[in-house]
Simulated assay, not measured.
Amino acid sequence: MLISPDLSAADNARTEYALTCAHFLRDRSGPLDVGGAHFRAKVLGAVTVPWTDLAVVRLDTPSPPKTLLPLATRRARWLAPALTQGFGGSWYKRRDRAGRVVGWTPVAASRDLRTLVRPGVILHNDPKVVRGDSGGPIIVDDEIVAVQSLIMDPFGVNLGIAAGSQVAPHLPRIRSAVEALRRAY
């Protein structure tokens, strides 16, 4: 998801920064192409937030003008209506998945224990979040409260429960990541 360099809201803004899930970058080498509908760019560099599933990337091309949502400064309240956006199931068409915050967790891990969400927000979505939605925003009250990270799918059955990496506890490290990428590129 595209973010403003100062992590605040911006209307009709162009940006070369994005916040995504760190597991997307794992085990990848060489040039990395990213994009969505009507936008393509290459990743110049990335900074991951240790012990989380959060990463900030800098793109080689600023985005077209977009409305950028602010990153939340506190966790989402219990039972708050939430919207998860992702490209699971389609490279070109963003999917919106309505849901509710049903809890929080100090830590959640993927089956192979390679992906950690710390701390996490737990959501119930309908339609269900699917593989490929990772890295998309979880929005509550027009703020990005988390980055979509994990789905709960024991034995391959998607339960409609997902975990996202909360951004509020990591705002100082996200700001530092943006600044490091600004200095490097």
Rank of each mutant, 00 (worst) to 15 (best):
G120R: 05
T52Q: 00
S8N: 15
T105E: 12
G99R: 04
A163G: 09
R182P: 00
D33S: 13
A80M: 08
R40Q: 13
A162M: 08
P127I: 10
R75T: 07
N158W: 08
D96A: 13
T61L: 09
W91Y: 14
E179G: 05
D27N: 15
V145M: 03
W51R: 12
D33T: 14
G103D: 12
L79F: 15
P65V: 01
P64E: 04
A41Y: 12
D96N: 14
I138C: 07
T67A: 10
Y17H: 08
T20E: 01
P50F: 08
G45E: 06
R100M: 12
A55T: 02
W104C: 03
P65R: 06
Y17A: 14
K66H: 10
I151P: 00
H23Q: 04
A146Q: 11
G35W: 13
A162P: 02
D141P: 01
S8R: 15
A184T: 10
G86V: 09
A9G: 06
L150I: 03
L25Y: 02
E143R: 13
G132V: 11
P81C: 09
R14I: 09
P5T: 14
V107C: 05
W91I: 05
S29W: 04
W78Y: 14
L123A: 05
A41C: 12
R40V: 03
A55Q: 04
F87K: 08
D60Y: 12
